[in-house]
Nucleic acid binder design. Structure first.
Lengths: 267, 267
DNA sequence: GCCAACCGTTCACGATTCATGAACAAGCTT
DNA sequence: AAGCTTGTTCATGAATCGTGAACGGTTGGC
C-alpha cells in the first residue's frame, strides 16, 4: 500500500553517520508498519513477518496498545486512529497546507480534476493535501503517501527549483527507478527534463508514475526561488493537447502556485 | 491541541496487567507527542520538556529522523508527514469509514452542517471522519482526535448501545470529567441520559463539550445491536427547536445511520 | 569583531531492560 | 473431548539504553 520506503529498507540518504539508533524504537515502528501494510495481524503472523520471537512482538504490540496506538480485536492487533491524530496535526501545521488548501480546492473545481499539494522530505515526495475529484473516492495515492520525486510532476517541479548540489545529492541517493515504462530513467535525459521544467515553470508527468494517469505541476517557491512545495492536477487525460477542456489547465496550475506563494510570503 | 490523553498520563483503562512495557518505545512516542504538541523543538527544549538527558533525546530524535518520521530543519526537529501516511491508511481500512463516507457527505450537504463519524477506542471517542462544513476550515476537532465519550453526542450514542458491563467499565475508568459547565458529571444523571438516548435512538450534546456547539448523533450498530460507531452533525444552533431549518435534522441523522448499517451488513 | 553563552552532537560507562526460547494457558476446530 | 494453534508469561544472558560530561559550531550581545 505504501511500499516505496520502509524501515527495514536501508535508508539511502544516510550511508554515513554511524550514530547508533534506538533499536527498540526501530522494532516498534517495524511492527507499526507491518500492521499498516497488512491491516490486522496476530502475534504469530507478525513474528513471522518480522523475523522476531513471539514474546518480543507481544511486548511491542502491548506497549503500543497501552499507549493508545494499537487496538486489540479478538486475538489480533490492528492500528487504531492514534497516528491519524498525530498525522493530521503535523499536516495542519504545514504552512503550505494551511494557506494552500483553499487555492487547491478552487483549482480542483475549476479544472474538474484531482488537485494535490506535494512537499519533499528526505529526498522523497509526500502528498500534503489531495482533493478527491467529485465522488471519486478511490485514488491510488493519498495524503501522507510517499512517492519518488523523479516520477511525478510535483516532484519534478520541486527538483527543478532545488539548489543544484542538493538536487544531485538526491539523484545520487535515490536514483531513477522505473515506475512504469514511461518513467525517465536516464540521468542526462532527466536533467534535460528539469531544464525544460525551468523554461516554462511547468512540469509534466506522462504516465511516468501510474499507467493511464497524466499530471501537470508548478513549483511553489520561497523568496530565494527554491521550491518548498508543488501544486499539481492529475487526470486520465493528456494535458496540453488539442482538447479545449485541458488546454488552459497548465495556466491555472501556475496561477494557483503563484497565489499560494503570495499568501505564503505575507503573514 | 490534543490534550485529553497522552503517553505521560497514566492510562486509566489498565490499572492491572503489570506486564513490562518497551520503555524505549514509550520514550520515543513521548518525543513524538511532544513534537506533535509543540510543533518544532530543539534537543534542549525537548529534553527539558520530557525531563531527559540531551543525549537521550538526540538519539530518539535522530532515530525517528532516519526512519522518515521526523524532519530536521535548521537546528530544530519537527514531525514529517510519515504518520499522516500511516494514519490515513488505518482510517481507510476502517469499514465504517469506507462505507460511511458517502452517506456522511450527503448528510452534511442536506443539513448544511459539519457531519462526523466517531468510533470508540480504549473507552474514548475518536473522529474517524469529518466533513468540514463549506469553507469552514477551522474546526476545533479533527479526524483522529480523541474526545471523551460522555461529553459528545456520538459518544453517548455509542455508550447507550454498548453492553452494560463494558459501559460501566468505561464509566469507572474514565469518569465524567467536566468539559464545559453543561457537561453531565453526575453518574446517575448520565445513566438516565443514556436511557433517553435508547428511547429515541438519538443522542444530543447541548454545549457539553464545547461552548456554543450543539450536536445530534445516532448509533451505528451491528447485528447484535451493539454500537460500532456513530454519525453526528454539529452546529452552532440548537437542534430540535422551533426553527424549521433544524427540525428534521435528527431524522436525517438517524436515516444516515441506518443507511450505513445496511451497507455494513451486506458485503 | 570578538567573546561568551548556547546549542546540537558525541562518547564511555554502568545499569537497565530488551530479545530469546521454552513453557503455559486459553481458544477454536474437529 | 482431544489436539492443534494461538496469545501470554517468564528467567536468563546479552545487548543497548540513558546518563553526564566534554566537544565543536553557531549565534547573539557587547
Amino acid at each position: 500500500m505504501n511500499k516505496l520506503r520502509r524501515v527495514d529498507d536501508e535508508p539511502p540518504f544516510m550511508t554515513d553517520s554511524r550514530a547508533p539508533l534506538a533499536q527498540t524504537t526501530v522494532t516498534s515502528l517495524r511492527v507499526v508498519e507491518a500492521l499498516d501494510e497488512h491491516g490486522r495481524l496476530g502475534v504469530t503472523a507478525l513474528a513471522a513477518e518480522l523475523d522476531l520471537a513471539k514474546g518480543t512482538v507481544h511486548k511491542h504490540v502491548t506497549t503500543l496498545e497501552r499507549l493508545g496506538y494499537v487496538v486489540k480485536e479478538d486475538r489480533e492487533y490492528r492500528l487504531g486512529l492514534g497516528f491519524l491524530g498525530v498525522g493530521v496535526n503535523s499536516q495542519r501545521r504545514l504552512d503550505v497546507y494551511r494557506v494552500g488548501r483553499g487555492p487547491t480546492d478552487r483549482l480542483s473545481k475549476a479544472t474538474d480534476t484531482v488537485a494535490s499539494l506535494m512537499v519533499a522530505e528526505h529526498g522523497r515526495g509526500r502528498y500534503a493535501y489531495r482533493v478527491p475529484h467529485g465522488d471519486e473516492y478511490e485514488l491510488a495515492h493519498h495524503e501522507g503517501d510517499v512517492l519518488p520525486l523523479h516520477a511525478t510532476a510535483g516532484g519534478k517541479a520541486i527538483l527543478a527549483y532545488t539548489p543544484a548540489d542538493r538536487r544531485e545529492e538526491i539523484l545520487e541517493s535515490h536514483g531513477l527507478p522505473p515506475m512504469t515504462e514511461h518513467t525517465i530513467t536516464d540521468r542526462d535525459a532527466f536533467r534535460e527534463e528539469l531544464r525544460s521544467v525551468r523554461d516554462t515553470r511547468t512540469a509534466y508527468d506522462r504516465e511516468e508514475l501510474l499507467d493511464g494517469w497524466h499530471c501537470v505541476a508548478a513549483p511553489i517557491t520561497n523568496e530565494e526561488g527554491d521550491a518548498v512545495a508543488a501544486v499539481s492536477v492529475s487526470a486520465e487525460t493528456e494535458f496540453g493537447d488539442a482538447s479545449k477542456r485541458t488546454q488552459d489547465v497548465p495556466g491555472l496550475v501556475i496561477s494557483t502556485a503563484t497565489a499560494i506563494e503570495n499568501k505564503l510570503r505575507s503573514p
